[in-house]
Design a protein around this nucleic acid. Sequence first.
DNA 1: TCAAACTGTTTGATAGACTAACCATTAACC
DNA 2: GGTTAATGGTTAGTCTATCAAACAGTTTGA
Lengths: 164, 164
Amino acid sequence: MSNSPNDCARELLEVIPEVMQMIRTQVRSQRGPDLSVLQIRVLAFLDGHPGAPLSAVAEHVGLTLPSMSTQVTGLVKRNLLERAISPTDRRYITLTLTSEGHARLTSASHGAQVTLAKTLAHLSNEERATIIQALQLLRATFSSEEIITEEIITETENVNHGRH
Amino acid sequence: MSNSPNDCARELLEVIPEVMQMIRTQVRSQRGPDLSVLQIRVLAFLDGHPGAPLSAVAEHVGLTLPSMSTQVTGLVKRNLLERAISPTDRRYITLTLTSEGHARLTSASHGAQVTLAKTLAHLSNEERATIIQALQLLRATFSSEEIITEEIITETENVNHGRH
DNA sequence: TCAAACTGTTTGATAGACTAACCATTAACC
DNA sequence: GGTTAATGGTTAGTCTATCAAACAGTTTGA
């Protein structure tokens, strides 16, 4: 059982999709909040980066700008987040969670977390520690570099998004 | 930094989607074989379980029977696998890789593997060992129990799937 | 023999993703 | 200053994927 980059890559390709599938079904089974994994990721990112521009969110979750735009439109329609225009640069749209969005996010991710935790409870402490360590390594290796959004946030004003 | 089931679950929910996204884009960038992650999983499963019935594949990759059926139709049209009827029970469709399907599978997964391995080469041996160990734990914990297909396989005959 | 159970397919309907084309705003450069 | 280029988002059109519901063929068994 070697640990060459190739072996590690093969293992990743084999196992990660399975785990992802499991997460997806568990999230989907949370009938309350009715959020997809992607939507949870978007809300979670905005929870940590309030006022982030659309492009930053798109890059973080790996969507194109158009896809992200329609996705956000849906979330705004459901009152989970707010679009606003950055006063410093009117090209930028800044996104912020509404209080309902925040509530839904915590409820959804908490629900999925509890279900997952039940399965993980069968493992030993050491095994869970190994998994956490590995996940942190993977995050450091794969996550796209942090995007600076601080300069754009500042004060934001609401934008009426009515069709002209 | 604790290792309770809940912490482990939270970490999973946060990191796995990112890694999955990375895998997806890397697989997509392999312009040769032009297979999705799902399709690779299907072909890989059939590589290990030749003659498996449709329902077994569907369960393994987490799709409903209808979705799997159309997915298979596409792969059959591309000559990557063959539909046949089990002679022991004519309700069952047994699926087998064609030689082209086998070739495409190895080429696709090898390609993705090489790309991923490049990124993983930046880690130390110990770090990769940790990741591999964690992945094996996750697989054991999450992978659905093995499905018995042996009894259905036996001899199979080709089926003409023309529209009547 | 005929109803029930089982495997798979067909049929809409819906959601999510992309590319291409477009609009608005800011920056750059004579 | 005014035209041009670059940047951030949106709209439109298309394509794929997924599901649930209804259906068809096969086997089981009462």
